[in-house]
Design a protein around this nucleic acid. Structure first.
Lengths: 261, 261
DNA sequence: TTGACGAACTCCTCTAGAGGAGTCATAAAG
DNA sequence: CTTTATGACTCCTCTAGAGGAGTTCGTCAA
């Protein structure tokens, strides 16, 4: 606390005490007085400084945590959250030229950036298409699909979970229904099967993660996720795959190029 | 509470009591037992039901609120958050054909969907370009830009704030530097000035809102925002505008079409 | 040198209160 | 019929404690 000098409370303010305290710490973070990874003064120190009860301090720290500004580590302290390196997903990442080099988009991209990509928890099942997926694929309600779910990691850190749905009538008996879908990934396989890919549509949402997502992606509290649903269309206008991915929003920037014509 | 039957606590569990309570209510919401807009049992009722202290209940409700599942209304109760109608932003929304109809993208789109669009808080200044904007526009560090900031509303509800930066050497003295930029918006003006727009690049991030953003967009707690930075390029490859927008993530789905070639 | 122990520190969970302030329906007063 | 009060209900803020559990580091014995 000697290092960090926080202001005093303003007793004339009608802003709640715990909010004032949160404001002070937030300002210190925004101004860089408290840098990434720095330790925030302990509860005891803050109680002492402000002369308030422990719960008031904890309320203030709770605010900052749910804003994604800090993380608490049991037994160690509260720290200013540090941001992981950001991955940029460009809109040409599924271009055929990449696919033809024999690597799946994720692998090629990650190695290009100097990281060690890996894929995890691959599970393949055949099941009835969920309603929204059936709609996107233009299938009947009870149509069956191959479901490929997996998790992507970079240097051992999980960054993204993905679930692909491919109509069973297309994928059944092909390598698409195998855990290792082969060089170039399932898009390469689809093209080999004669489905000439024309374009993708990506729908992007953002929200707070579910509990399973926090666990699977090892997310800090206060970090939202992107949910990206990609549908692949052939030159005939037929949808052949839907991929539903969830990724940590602070590890990604999504980048798209769109025509002005 | 008569209507809603929550499970009892599991005393053998090592999961904290307030987390168990949050889990119960979360499940009720996910299963639809508690629907959008429904009132969650009051603190007093939950205290009674679980036989725990008020702070324990408040902790549980706090968890749900920061997950964006509920909103508390002072004096009224805690309610399951209802989601506003979602606006889909398609990647062709800046197509020239729309521009030529004489309406700015936002206005045309909103009217098409049956809403009443309006624009608010328009402020135009000339200033030095922020560092990141200067980089995107390919300008020198001390270059001057026209800064157009405004807020978009639908049926009186704010949905998006936006700040555009246009190099002063382009915009100075033109209608771009006026509050009313005229039919078709500033992209139409740029084309009239001879800057033929070729494509846009949009970078999308997501994070928890700052306090000002929560106020400006009237965001509920636990709702992240999209930050979308769009750069407009001419056929010469010159960047002529950067637009930095912040929008409520639960009012928007961003949709992009990308080529597979 | 190594390893076990313990003290001091950290955040986490929970209790049991108090007063404040916003909302709403109802009853009383105009 | 309108307006004003009142009371019951809601969530909000804050206090003052208690014990628990994880981390760190120095001490001391082997």
């Amino acid at each position: 606390m000697a290092e960090l000098s926080l202001p005093e409370l303003d007793p004339t303010s009608d802003r709640a005490v715990f909010r004032q305290i949160a404001d002070h710490i937030r300002e210190a973070i925004e101004q860089g007085t408290l840098a990434e990874g720095d330790k925030v003064p302990s509860e005891a120190q803050l109680m002492q400084h402000y002369g308030v009860a422990r719960m008031t301090i904890r309320n203030a720290l709770q605010v900052l945590q749910s804003e994604g500004l800090t993380v608490a580590e049991h037994g160690r302290g509260v720290f200013v959250r540090s941001h992981p390196p950001v991955r940029r997903l460009a809109s040409d990442r599924f271009a055929r030229r990449h696919r033809q080099e024999g690597k799946a988009a994720f692998i090629a991209e990650t190695e290009g950036a100097g990281g060690k990509p890996s894929v995890d928890s691959i599970r393949i099942t055949e099941e009835e298409a969920p309603a929204d997926v059936a709609t996107l694929l233009g299938l009947a309600e009870d149509a069956r699909v191959i479901r490929r779910s997996r998790r992507y990691l970079i240097n051992g850190q999980p960054v993204e979970t993905a679930v692909s749905y491919i109509p069973a009538e297309i994928a059944m008996g092909t390598r698409i229904a195998e855990p290792d879908s082969g060089p170039g990934g399932i898009y390469a396989r689809l093209e080999e099967l004669g489905y000439r890919l024309d374009h993708f549509v990506e729908d992007i949402r953002s929200r707070m993660p579910l509990r399973e997502e926090m666990r699977a992606l090892r997310l800090a509290p206060g970090v939202p996720v992107f949910r990206l649903v990609r549908t692949a269309y052939t030159t005939d206008g037929k949808a052949v795959e839907v991929c539903d991915t969830v990724m940590s929003s602070d590890a990604y920037v999504l980048s798209y190029e769109l025509p002005a014509r």
